[in-house]
Amino acid sequence: PEDLERKVRELQKNGVSPEQIEKILRRDGVDEREVQELVKKVS
């Protein structure tokens, strides 16, 4: 979803590592495939 992507970009802009971003997304209940997609987009 659009807002998730925005969140991921925000986190990355704040210097959060892709690994941390993955953890955060998983903790928020984002589905694994979605997590991978989002992280791939920003890394």
Rank of each mutant, 00 (worst) to 15 (best):
15 G>M: 04
38 L>V: 13
12 Q>I: 15
24 I>V: 04
40 K>L: 03
39 V>D: 03
32 E>K: 04
16 V>I: 12
18 P>N: 12
22 E>W: 00
34 E>M: 15
14 N>P: 00
4 L>N: 06
23 K>C: 10
4 L>P: 04
36 Q>V: 09
39 V>P: 02
28 D>N: 10
7 K>D: 01
20 Q>W: 08
26 R>Y: 06
12 Q>T: 13
23 K>H: 08
19 E>W: 00
24 I>A: 04
15 G>F: 01
30 V>E: 04
30 V>Y: 15
27 R>D: 15
34 E>P: 02
19 E>I: 08
23 K>Y: 00
21 I>P: 01
27 R>G: 13
12 Q>Y: 15
12 Q>F: 15
24 I>N: 03
11 L>S: 01
7 K>V: 09
43 S>Q: 13
11 L>D: 01
31 D>W: 03
42 V>Y: 02
31 D>V: 05
39 V>T: 04
43 S>M: 15
14 N>F: 05
32 E>W: 09
20 Q>F: 05
18 P>M: 15
1 P>T: 12
37 E>D: 13
13 K>S: 10
27 R>E: 15
33 R>H: 10
37 E>Y: 01
27 R>K: 13
1 P>H: 14
25 L>K: 02
3 D>E: 13
14 N>W: 04
5 E>A: 11
38 L>Y: 00
23 K>I: 14
35 V>Q: 01
21 I>S: 01
43 S>L: 15
27 R>S: 14
25 L>P: 02
33 R>N: 11
3 D>R: 08
20 Q>N: 11
1 P>D: 11
10 E>S: 06
16 V>K: 10
25 L>A: 03
15 G>W: 01
22 E>P: 00
40 K>M: 04
22 E>A: 06
22 E>R: 05
7 K>I: 09
8 V>T: 02
41 K>W: 03
43 S>K: 13
15 G>L: 03
13 K>R: 13
1 P>Y: 14
37 E>N: 09
16 V>S: 07
42 V>F: 02
28 D>I: 14
10 E>T: 07
33 R>F: 09
10 E>M: 09
31 D>P: 13
34 E>H: 11
38 L>C: 08
28 D>V: 09
35 V>F: 07
42 V>D: 05
